[in-house]
Computed example of a mutant assay.
Amino acid sequence: MIIEQIVTSLEDVHPETRLSRHLEKVYLQSDDLLKRVQRVVTDHGRELGISLLQPANLSHGDVLFMDDHNLIVVEVVPEDVLIIRPRSIGEMGDIAHKLGNRHLPAQFEEDRMLVQYDYLVEDLLKHSGIPYTQEKLKVKQPFKPIGHSHG
């Protein structure tokens, strides 16, 4: 089966509809969410080809296939992240500048900054005295590589 478009989000599927269908999951690392073309296997062993016609990133909860009997959904594998919680705008500016110099992709949710775990970043946070925790999380969106040029 070739998947060419995202049908909907699981959040938008009526609960009754979800319960009446066989649910299969495609487990993806956050990096794989950026790939428009890939071959995957569901948790029930069904092989799928994903070849998205429109440029779009996959997301946790995307429904790849739905009929009267089945639902195939993207499930993001939890990954090791650092959750940074600066106490002030000054700390935020300081750590954002330091991480920006490393061209490290980050995500922002409310009062926290998420970055993929890196022992060097953890060491930087410790030495800078900026509060953080290390956790395994399902990120909602992929960490996108940052293109850069110093020319």
Results as ranks from 00 to 15, higher is better:
I2M: 11
I3K: 06
I6W: 06
T8C: 14
T8R: 14
H14A: 12
H14E: 12
H14R: 12
E16W: 13
L19S: 12
R21S: 06
H22R: 13
L23Y: 08
K25C: 13
K25Q: 13
V26M: 08
Y27H: 15
Y27K: 12
Y27N: 11
L28Q: 03
Q29N: 11
S30D: 10
L33M: 05
L34A: 04
L34W: 02
R36A: 05
V37A: 11
V37F: 09
V37Q: 11
Q38E: 06
V40W: 07
V40G: 05
H44K: 15
H44M: 11
G45N: 08
G45D: 07
R46H: 11
R46Y: 09
L48I: 12
L48R: 13
G49E: 15
G49N: 15
I50Q: 00
Q54V: 14
P55K: 14
A56R: 15
A56Y: 12
S59E: 07
G61N: 02
L64R: 07
L64K: 08
M66R: 14
D67T: 08
D68P: 04
I72Y: 08
I72R: 10
V73Y: 10
V74D: 02
V74W: 03
V76Y: 02
V77G: 06
P78N: 05
E79W: 04
E79Q: 14
E79H: 10
D80G: 08
L82C: 01
L82A: 01
L82Q: 03
L82W: 02
L82S: 02
I84D: 01
R85I: 04
R87D: 04
R87M: 03
I89D: 01
G90L: 09
G93S: 03
A96G: 02
H97K: 09
H97S: 03
L99S: 04
N101G: 12
N101A: 06
R102Q: 10
A106E: 02
Q107I: 02
Q107N: 04
R112I: 00
M113T: 01
M113S: 01
M113L: 10
V115P: 05
Q116C: 05
Y119L: 09
Y119M: 07
Y119R: 13
L120A: 11
E122W: 10
E122Q: 15
H127M: 06
S128V: 01
I130C: 01
Y132L: 02
Y132T: 03
T133Y: 04
Q134K: 10
V139N: 00
K140P: 00
P142Q: 06
F143D: 03
K144V: 09
P145V: 06
I146W: 04
